[in-house]
Design a binder for these strands. Structure first.
Length: 436
RNA sequence: GGGGAGAUACUCAAGCGGCCAACGAGGACAGACUGUAAAUCUGUUGGUGUAUUCCUUCGCAGGUUCGAAUCCUGCUCUCCCCA
C-alpha cells in the first residue's frame, strides 16, 4: 500500500461554519492543527439502533475524519451499565447484560456505515467494557478516584440538579468512569479530544481534569449544541416516535419524509450539520433555495443525501418514488396503472393491513376504515365519520364523501386499496379472498 | 407525630346538587390558503349514532338524594406548613 498523503483541514473552523460548536476548551484548535490527532465520542447503548438525534454526534466524527483526523466511536458497554445522570431527572433503570450486548453490536454495525475504516486515519470502534471488566473496584478508586475530589464532582450541573431529588452513588460515579475512558483513550490511542452533545460538557471536563492531574497531560473538549426545531418540538421525533436509522424501525420512506418535511427555518441549520458538501456548495444551495423556497431545494438535497448514506441508493430510490407517487400529482388512474412490483416497492414503508373481500363488500366506509381494518386507520367509527365529513379521507386518491356508502373503489392490481387520512398519512389495505 | 391543601379527559385548568361528556388554554388531528414549509383562519378532540337518544367517564369503594364531578363515610396517593 502506498503511503497516503493526508489532506488536513481545520476541524474547529469546519464545525464553526456548520454551526456545530457549542462550547470549546481553549487551545483545542491549535492542538488539532499540529497534525493528525484522535478524538472520540461515546454512544449509549440504550437502544438497539441509533436515531437521528444521535446523528449529530455521528456527523461530528465524520467531519473530524474528513479533516484528516482519526475518529473513535466508543460504545458504552461499561458506562451503559451505570447510566448517565446528565439531563435526567430520575434514577435510571439498569439494562440487563444480554440486551446491552445486543444493542452494542447493532450500534457498532450502524456506525460502520458512516466512518472510513481504512487508511492512516482509519476510524475505530472501541468498547469501554474491554478495559473496565478487568479493573477492580479498589484499583479504580485508587487510580482514578484519588485524583478527583468529591467537591469537584459535586459542582457539576448534572449532579447539582439531582441533589434535591436524590442521586445514587452509582450515577454519581458516572462522570468518573467516563473521565477514566478519556484518560484511557488519551493514553493508549492518542485521543486528545472528546466530543459530545452540550449536556456532556461536565463529564468530558472531568476527563480532561483527570488526564491533567494523573498524567500532567493535555486534553481538550468540544461540545455541539442541542438541535432544536423552530416550532419548539423535539428534533428527531414525530409525535413520540424516534426516527431510527434501522430500516426495520423506521422505514426509509418515513426517514426520507422526515427530512423533506423540515421547515425552511430548520433546514438551513440541518444541511450544514448533516451534509458532507463543502462550504461553498452549501452556501450556494442556500442562496438558491431562498430565491424560491417553494421548490424546497434544500429539503430535497438534504433528504437525498442522508437517506442514501443511511439506507443506500436503493433505499433512497424507493423512498423518492413512493414520495412522488403519494405526494405528486398522481391521479387515481395513474395509481391503477402501476404494476404490482412498483406498487409493493412504493408501499413498503407505509402501514398495511388485511381485510377479507366479503368484509369489504358489506361494510360502510366509516366502519370499514375503523373496525374492519383493525383500528389501524381510525380508532373509532365516530372518528372516521367525523374525518370523512370534514373532507379528510381519500381512498385511491379519491376523496370519500359519505361515511355510509359501501367502499366501491376499484382495487389496485385486484387486491389493494390505498387509504389516505389527511395529506400525509397513507395506509395500504390488502383485500384477500375469504377463507385464505 | 401535629395541622392544612389537593386528586377532573393527552397536559394544564375551571366546575362545587340538576342547564355536565363536563368552561378555558395548550397539544394533537383535519379542512381552507400554500410549497408535503411557516404563519393565519375554521372544524374535531369518550363510545355508539341521522339524532337535542343511549352507554361509559371527573383518584378508589360505598352511602345520601327523584337526581352527584359536585354532599357524607372509609381507603389510596400527592403536595405544603409545624415538630
Amino acid at each position: 500500500m502506498l503511503p497516503q498523503l493526508l489532506i488536513m483541514k481545520d476541524f474547529v473552523e469546519e464545525l464553526r461554519w456548520r454551526g456545530m460548536v457549542h462550547d470549546i476548551m481553549p487551545g483545542t484548535q491549535a492542538a488539532l492543527n499540529k497534525g493528525l490527532a484522535a478524538a472520540y465520542i461515546g454512544f449509549d447503548p440504550t437502544a438497539d439502533s441509533l436515531h437521528i438525534g444521535n446523528m449529530v454526534q455521528v456527523m461530528t466524527l465524520v467531519h473530524f475524519q474528513k479533516c484528516g483526523h482519526k475518529p473513535i466511536a466508543l460504545v458504552g458497554g461499561a458506562t451503559g451499565r451505570i447510566g448517565d445522570p446528565s439531563g435526567k431527572s430520575d434514577e435510571r433503570s439498569l439494562l440487563d447484560e444480554k440486551v446491552l450486548n445486543y444493542n452494542l453490536s447493532c450500534i457498532k454495525t450502524q456506525l460502520e456505515n458512516f466512518l472510513d475504516f481504512d487508511g492512516i486515519n482509519a476510524a475505530e470502534v472501541v468498547n469501554n467494557y474491554d478495559w473496565f471488566k478487568e479493573f477492580n473496584f479498589l484499583d479504580f478508586i485508587r487510580d482514578a478516584g484519588k485524583h478527583i475530589t468529591v467537591n469537584y464532582m459535586m459542582a457539576k450541573d448534572s449532579v447539582k440538579a439531582r441533589l434535591a431529588s436524590g442521586l445514587s452513588f452509582t450515577e454519581f460515579s458516572y462522570q468518573l468512569i467516563q473521565g477514566y475512558d478519556f484518560y484511557y483513550l488519551w493514553k493508549h490511542k492518542n485521543a486528545k479530544l472528546q466530543l459530545g452533545g452540550s449536556d456532556q460538557w461536565g463529564n468530558i471536563v472531568t476527563g480532561t481534569e483527570l488526564i491533567r492531574r494523573k498524567a500532567q497531560g493535555e486534553a481538550f473538549a468540544l461540545t455541539t449544541p442541542l438541535i432544536t426545531k423552530a416550532d419548539g418540538s423535539k428534533f428527531g421525533k414525530t409525535e413520540d416516535e424516534n426516527i431510527w436509522l434501522d430500516p426495520e424501525k423506521t422505514s426509509p420512506y418515513k426517514f426520507y419524509q422526515y427530512w423533506i418535511n423540515a421547515s425552511d427555518e430548520d433546514v438551513e441549520k440541518y444541511i450544514r450539520i448533516f451534509s458532507l458538501k463543502e462550504k461553498e456548495a452549501i452556501e450556494s444551495l442556500i442562496t438558491e433555495h431562498k430565491k424560491s423556497p417553494g421548490q424546497r431545494l434544500l429539503q430535497r438535497t438534504l433528504a437525498e443525501e442522508i437517506t442514501e448514506r443511511v439506507h443506500s441508493k436503493n433505499g433512497l430510490e424507493k423512498a423518492v418514488k413512493a414520495s412522488s407517487i403519494l405526494f405528486g400529482k398522481t391521479a387515481t388512474k395513474d395509481l391503477i396503472s402501476l404494476d404490482e412490483r412498483t406498487l409493493m416497492q412504493v408501499f413498503e414503508g407505509i402501514p398495511q393491513t388485511e381485510v377479507s373481500k366479503t368484509a369489504l363488500e358489506s361494510t360502510d366506509t366509516a366502519t370499514f376504515l375503523s373496525e374492519t381494518t383493525h383500528n389501524l386507520i381510525f380508532k373509532s367509527k365516530g372518528e372516521a365519520r367525523k374525518m370523512i365529513q370534514g373532507g379528510g379521507v381519500s381512498i385511491n386518491k379519491l376523496k370519500v364523501t359519505s361515511p355510509e356508502d359501501i367502499v366501491n373503489h376499484d382495487l389496485l392490481q385486484g387486491k389493494y386499496l390505498l387509504a389516505q387520512k389527511g395529506k400525509k398519512n397513507y395506509f395500504l389495505i390488502k383485500v384477500i379472498e375469504a377463507g385464505t
